[in-house]
Design a protein around this nucleic acid. Structure first.
Length: 565
RNA sequence: GGCAGGGUAGCUCAGAGGCCAGAGCAGGGGCUUCAUAAGCCCUUUGUCGGCGGUUCGAUUCCGCCCCCUGCUACCA
């Protein structure tokens, strides 16, 4: 292997890739994929190819009020609802190539055990306390109402559809008790105040240690770090972590039979419990410690921006309180992807639903489109016309066609085999191959820093450079009067393509697997390591077929018409 | 209201205290024909949101203002 990669960190590294837990009350859409799952997958595939101890985990968030509400409106059980969408998630990840080592759920015995242990330990150490709280209660639905499940008239602007947490009309933050004529969103009933007892986590006790810790995280994205520091400057509020519901994890205390541990407290614990579950499945139950207690390991949380405080404040506070577990190394949260200029909306059907997409199109073009516009610094916009254009101009014409044209000329003129290895290489050929080899370090570092759009652009530039190289060397004419020159060119181009295929594998795993086979390689590209695998002279080349399908412009209109219906 | 991010070519976006502010696409011109009518070269366009300030010099730093997006913690 001629890899030029040199890793400045200790190698192999130990890396836990912790990905957002999707709420199991609907299918996944492209915005969630671009925000968390795809960047995590690219990152994981790269680190696996480097040979690092890489583990990628997540699971379905199966608890919470929306799951219960959906179950009731469908006349079924919460279990049925979350299991249905858990299956949908697994199917999406499988078809889209999101390569989890374990994608579990929060409804396992293991997770309940880990959660209860953390709960009791924090209680023992004085980080939890019991207090009374008065909340709005829906007597008809027999349930306490989160602020946003209460509607009424805004006391400031008299908008009649204001939610209990915020008025959508004037934008002001509200307290549900301020609403005039409050109504429950779950029934027609008027909510009434009711006092209840809960456990609170003393987040305020961690304000100083969190501030000190976050201040040191200068490698975090500015948006994530500034936002977090801003909240710390305001001062953290203690939060209730139990609820009067019956769907969720039991509170391990007497007198709490009718309460459950609240979802946001237990869902983040899923990262730890999933690691433990994976270790048990592997038959090495202590292996979770490699990621959570080894000071050399890095834990990276891939999230959408709405989840930042849970991963930069609340979960770290819980970890500090529990002790002896690694704090997050980074939380490279993404902004949002809008669809044709508007924010994705589940209820308005304004989204690219992954099951629908995968029924109609191939995974790699969407992986490509979403990576190219990954919202790493600001919100970005997905449109079907850009999707089609990028597929046709960039994947089909620039990269797919490069592979196809080189292999086709070669097979036709060199008896179906790679030309013999040239005795010496021209300046241009050497330059091209060096550029490919150097890219492993450059692109690798960009992936490691989670600058994925830049990493993909860097790689695609090399594909373009290979097209330029071919133009200059015109092997299609050289083959007639200077076969040796043509042979050197095509041998070099095939080797460049081999390197580019490996570089693209984290981004486009399906088509790179195909390209790998067309190059006459055996085995799998993801097993080849992060470096260019040379193609020897006289390698038998199988008949290639196009890596990407050209898409017709008509799908733009079709797909856009389906939005919002 | 508060906080955060953003406002850069027709479009989608990069970028950086100072050589002519960039890329891809779109538009215009040319070359090529191996390839999925694919490839390559050349080329037009910008008051870098507005107003002040710091500086020898700012679009890049600071202040104020306008606009967009998100968050504002019992949705997670």
């Amino acid at each position: 292997m001629t890899s030029s990669h040199s890793n400045t960190r200790l190698s192999p590294e130990t890396i836990l890739i912790a990905v957002a837990w999707p709420y199991a009350n609907g299918h996944l859409h492209a915005g969630q994929i671009a925000g968390a799952y795809l960047p995590a997958d690219i990152y994981a595939r790269y680190h696996r190819m480097l040979g690092n101890h890489t583990l990628m985990v997540s699971g379905s968030d199966s608890h919470g009020t929306p799951v219960t509400v959906r179950a009731e409106s469908e006349g079924t059980t919460p279990t049925e609802v979350f299991e249905r969408f858990h299956e949908s998630f697994l199917d999406t990840f499988n078809r889209f190539g999101i390569s989890f080592d374990l994608f579990t759920t929060t409804d396992t015995e293991n997770h309940a055990k880990v959660t209860q242990d953390i709960f009791l330990t924090l209680l023992e150490r004085g980080y939890l306390y019991e207090a009374e709280q008065t909340l709005l209660y829906d007597p008809q639905a027999d349930r306490f109402l989160p602020d946003r499940y209460v509607e009424g008239t805004c006391p400031h602007c008299e908008y009649t559809q204001a939610r209990g947490d915020q008025c959508d009309d004037c934008g002001r933050t509200l307290d549900a008790f301020e609403l005039i004529n409050p109504r429950s969103k779950l029934s027609a009933a008027s909510p009434v105040p009711k006092t209840t007892k809960h456990h609170f986590i003393k987040l305020s006790a961690f304000n100083d240690s969190l501030t000190e810790w976050v201040t040191q995280q200068t490698h975090w994205r500015p948006a994530v770090r500034n936002f977090t520091l801003g909240m710390l400057r305001e001062g953290l509020h203690d939060r209730a972590i139990t609820r009067d519901i019956d769907w969720g994890i039991s509170v391990p205390l007497d007198g709490y039979e009718n309460k459950r541990i609240y979802v946001w407290f237990e869902a983040v614990i899923g990262y730890l419990s999933a690691t433990k579950e994976w270790a048990q499945i592997e038959g090495r139950p202590d292996d979770w410690k490699n990621w959570w207690q080894n000071s050399e390991s890095r834990i990276i949380y891939f999230q959408g921006k709405d989840n930042v405080p849970f991963h930069t404040l609340i979960w770290p506070a819980m970890l500090m309180g529990y002790g002896d577990l690694n704090l997050p190394y980074d939380v490279p949260a993404n902004q949002y992807v809008t669809i044709s200029g508007s924010k994705a909306s589940t209820s308005g059907n304004w989204a690219i639903w992954m099951p629908d997409y995968l029924d109609r199109y191939d995974p790699d073009p969407l992986r490509y489109a979403l990576t190219v516009l990954m919202p790493e610094t600001s919100d970005s916009d997905f449109s079907w016309s850009e999707y089609v254009r990028r597929n046709n101009d960039e994947l089909v014409a620039r990269w797919g066609n490069l592979v196809n044209r080189v292999l086709t000329i070669t097979r036709r003129n060199f008896e179906g085999r790679t030309p013999a290895t040239p005795s010496s290489l021209s300046q241009e050929s050497e330059t091209l191959l060096r550029r490919v080899d150097d890219a492993f370090e450059i692109v690798g570092e960009q992936i490691n820093e989670v600058q994925l759009r830049r990493a993909l652009a860097s790689t695609m530039e090399i594909a373009q450079g290979t097209n330029q190289y071919l133009e200059e060397r015109a092997p299609w004419s050289a083959v007639k009067n200077d076969p040796e020159h043509a042979g050197e060119t095509l041998h070099t181009a095939i080797n460049a393509i081999s390197g580019i295929t490996t570089l693209l594998q984290p981004f486009l795993p399906f088509t790179c697997a195909a390209a790998w086979d067309f190059l006459g390689h055996s085995g799998e590209v993801q097993e080849a390591g992060w470096g260019r695998t040379p193609v020897a002279g006289e390698t038998l080349l199988p008949e290639p077929s196009p890596l990407f399908r050209k898409l017709d412009d008509s799908i733009v209109e079709e797909e856009e018409a389906a939005l919002g219906t």
